[in-house]
Design a protein around this nucleic acid. Structure first.
Length: 120
RNA sequence: CCAGCCGGCCGGACGGUCGCCUCGCGAAAGCGGGGAGGAAAGUCCGGGCUCCAUGGAUGAACGGUGCCGGAUAAUAUCCGGCGGGGGUGACCCCAGGGAAAGUGCCACAGAAAGCAAACCGCUCGCCUUCUUCGUAGGCUCCGAUCUUUCGGAAUGCGUGGCGGGACGGCCCCUAAAGGGCCACUCCGCAAGGAAGGCCGAAGGUGAAGGCGGGUAAGGGUGAAAGGGUGGGGUAAGAGCCCACCGCGGACCCGGCAACGGGGACGGCACGGCAAACCCCACCGGGAGCAAGACCAAGAAGGGGCGGCGCGGGUUCCGUUCGUAUUUCGUCGGGGCCCGGCUUGAUCCAGGCCAGCCGCCCGGGUCGGUCGCGUGAAGCGCUCAGCAAUGGGCGCUCCAGAUGAAUGGCCGUCACGCCGCAGCGCUUCGGCACUGCGGCCUUACAGAACCCGGCUUACAGGCCGGCUGGCGUU
RNA sequence: GCGGGGAUAGCUCAACGGCAGAGCGUCGAGGUUCCACCUUGGAGGCGUUGGUUCGAUUCCAGCUCCCCGCU
């Protein structure tokens, strides 16, 4: 199952205008591109959240790992997702983080039933 | 054993599983290798590398460095040494050139804060005034007398004696009170004489003031006061002289040097601040991998405004021409002078002069590759050197992302911390051991072209050397 | 990556190397029946660690934090 990364500032700005779901450890933003390409994920952890580079890296990596485990079941084709890291993502138990991401993705795409796996 | 100083090092280990980046092999599936640090950090210095400028010189301005020698690609780093300061010591700290090139500052206090003098004070001479002593002399008094001279001086005075007493000086003793001696002065008593005075030139003593000299010893200050202590000396004083100490110091010796040791001699002058301006010596062209190079794709070979230019001046020549033979103009050629840009602070030299330059508007792209890790590389041995470091030999290849990999979950163990229980010791604060449970699965912290330093952060632990103290043998 | 500036009272800012100040705010007193205005008095501070100097907010380094510019 191909999952790509978001790299352009343009795409981040566009995703910010889509659906959002805030959780303790992150904020999820979702936007449908309107094509059939694979789902794309972007990560943002600002210096305001964690001043030290070590902490920012850790937050991004934990979110990345959660996406890796959750995306095959929840991500849709033709959709961009942006995860904005928050401070709680640093120490929250990983099982909670993963469950929170699962619920957040379910919420943002409610009523829109096109799982990647069913199309694949 | 306790306290401390210096240097070096580690800073979790092993494994399973699912992933990420990269390299190699492979047609593919896949397999195999590698994957953060001592600071990767701060960006405080120094270099490599790349581009721009580059023919040479100067060194202005600006910035930096600042004991000496060495190391190095280079440094503000490092090593060794010197000097100063701190510590009982091991050892630590120091931007540590120049103050007789110049300018400036030194608040408050203090007489004075920097050419050394002024002031107070001390002291000498002269003058004036006053005080006191007092010679010659005068006035008055007493006695004697040849009656005009001599002698002498009253209410008290002088001398010595005895007794008493305040201040002062010295000595003794003391906790203190006190005691003794000496000198001056005052009071009282007694003795002796007929009387037992006053004024006072000159001169002397003392005080005040003025004038003219000498002096830097002293002047409660201050961070700092024109050497310090002691003695001699002097009118008073002074390196004025002497001794010791300090200071400067030709010269000699040691050292590559900084500097150290000695030191004739000088008689004492030269305060501090340059992390105040400054002077001196030395160093520095600018920018930074978003440097820079290439490929692909696509768009456009545009428009507007402004500036400068394609030249100007002068002179000479003539197989150009005009009515034109030296004078005027024109044409062609040559010489000289005057520009712009590159170009920067200046000078000389060089190049270009093509249309160029600047700003604005409009249009396209924002993908990829290289740079990019074999390097001032690491490790080990060895040699030279006190060391920094350098030479030689052998072995190894050890991260390369670009919205940016190095992660998630789990197991075992080591270490540490916390809690509980048991037991032992105890100076009743705790300490040690065992077991169980929990926590961090460990501090500071994440590469972005590379390297050498500096600085800063860092739980806990290990090793080596050294110093001081206590105890035992 | 490269470079510049700053930190002084609760706030906004001054200050030749020698006394730390102004405005607003705050507290107390006066004035007012009360409040406001006004008058008067007070408290409160040089980011931090070293160094130079007789003496540092000032000069010089290191550190921390903040702001700004270029690419």
């Amino acid at each position: 199952m191909p999952v790509e990364r978001l790299t352009k500032r343009r795409d981040f700005k566009a995703a910010a205008k889509g659906q959002r779901a805030a959780r303790r450890a992150f904020v999820l933003e979702m936007r449908k591109r309107g094509d059939d390409g694979p789902p794309r994920f972007g990560f943002t952890v600002s210096k305001r959240v964690a001043a030290k580079a070590v902490e920012r890296n850790r937050i991004r990596r934990r979110l990345k790992e959660a996406v890796r485990l959750v995306a095959p079941d929840q991500a849709r084709c033709g959709t961009d997702y942006v995860l904005i890291g928050r401070r709680a993502a640093l120490n929250e138990p990983f099982a909670d983080l993963r469950a929170a991401l699962h619920k957040a993705m379910t919420k943002t795409q409610r009523g829109d039933r096109h799982p990647v796996r069913s199309e694949a």
